[in-house]
Amino acid sequence: MAAQKTESFWWLLFSAGGMMSAIFLPGHVFFQGLAMQLGWLPESATSYGRMVELLSHPIAKLYLLALISLSLFHAGHRLKHVVSDLGLEAPGLVAFIFYGVAFLGTGLTVFALANIG
C-alpha cells in the first residue's frame, strides 16, 4: 500500500508537533500532571482568577493552541502508523479517526481559549 499523496502535509504537522511536544510537554506533564495531582501546587497558583489572568494573555493563548493542536496532530499521525504496524490495514478509516480527533481538539481549544478572559 502506497502512502497517501497528502502525506507531506500531515508530516509537516507531525514534525512541528513532535518538536513542540518534545520541548514543552515534559514540563507540563510534571507540573500540570504529576505535581498538581499530588497536591504540590499551592492553592493560590491554581485559583480561577489567576488561571484566567494567565490565560488572557494573547501569547499564552497562542502558545497553548499551538501546543495542544500540534501535539494532537503529531500523535494522530504517529498512531495512524502504529495501527498499521500492528497489522490493522484500514488506512482511510484510521486516518479519518486520528486526524478527526486532532481537528476536533483544535476546534475545541480555539473555542475554549476564545471564551477565557
Binding site: G17, S21, L25, H28, V29, Q32, G33, Y48, M51, V52, L55, L64, L67, I68, S71, L72, H74, A75, G76, L79, V101, G105, L108, T109, F111, A112, L113, A114, N115, I116
Partner: peptide, 17 residues
C-alpha cells in the same frame, strides 16, 4: 502525547466554563 494534550484541553474547557 495524545492523552496529555487532551488532559490539558480538558482543563482549558473547564476554565472557559
Amino acid at each position: 502525547v495524545l492523552l496529555f494534550a487532551m488532559r490539558l484541553l480538558q482543563g482549558l474547557i473547564a476554565i472557559s466554563k
